[in-house]
């Protein structure tokens, strides 16, 4: 009997392994998507100088007070160009504050970029050497964070924003955080 069980063992082990193979395939999990460990932690208190003369930079106090989106972008980044219209529409249609962080960019190129495509941001800080981004746990631009009124990071979106992600995940979360505050 024990002998029989022993011969069954390889099959049982394989069943477990096959289960582990099946789940990510069926759920279409993307192994490249990584959760941020910064969720629910205070946003890093950097003092990033302004990109534009007439718009403030991003200091530690700028991230507190109300719920907001923080968007890391650069003029050399293709996907940023893709998501830009969505940010523009967001700025036009809602009163959600948008904070831009210009990542490892040339100032002139960034200025041209904003002039061409429009500027959706209320404040833009310059992260010239990418150090602030590393403290945020940024992998690459674009990335967008939801930061709540107490200055804690609540959500991270990797890659270009999509209308769907905005509607289904980000905006509901923003509403929820606003409600929690009020």
């Amino acid at each position: 009997m024990l002998n029989r069980l022993l011969f069954l063992l390889p099959l049982l082990i394989f069943a477990v392994i096959a289960g582990y193979f099946t789940v990510p395939i069926l759920t279409k999990k993307d192994p490249h998507l990584l959760p941020s460990v910064m969720i629910d932690k205070p946003a890093p208190p950097h003092d990033l100088g302004p990109l534009l003369e007439d718009k403030p930079g991003v200091g530690p106090e700028a991230l507190r007070g109300e719920v907001k989106l923080v968007n890391f972008f650069a003029s050399w980044c293709g996907p940023c160009r893709v998501e830009h219209p969505i940010l523009m529409r967001l700025a036009a249609e809602t009163d959600l504050p948008l904070v831009g962080i210009n990542y490892k960019d040339q100032r002139d190129a960034a200025l041209v970029w904003l002039r061409e495509l429009g500027d959706p941001f209320g404040r833009i800080g310059v992260d010239g050497d990418g150090r602030a981004a590393i403290d945020w746990g940024v992998y690459g631009v674009p990335e967008t964070y939801v930061v709540d009124a107490s200055g804690h990071i609540r959500y991270r979106h990797v890659g270009p924003l999509t209308a769907q992600a905005l509607k289904e995940t980000i905006l509901p979360m923003v509403e929820q955080l606003k409600a929690a505050k009020g």
Binding site: N3, R4, L11, A15, A18, T22
Partner: peptide
């Protein structure tokens, strides 16, 4: 390509599961 992954996974499960079942039945 997830569809291809699923197909090969099917082959893998049938081939390995089948052969190990045969093993469990016949090898003793």
């Amino acid at each position: 390509d997830p569809e291809r992954g699923l197909f090969i996974l099917g082959i893998l499960i049938v081939a390995v599961g089948g052969s190990l079942t045969l093993f469990a039945v016949r090898a003793p």
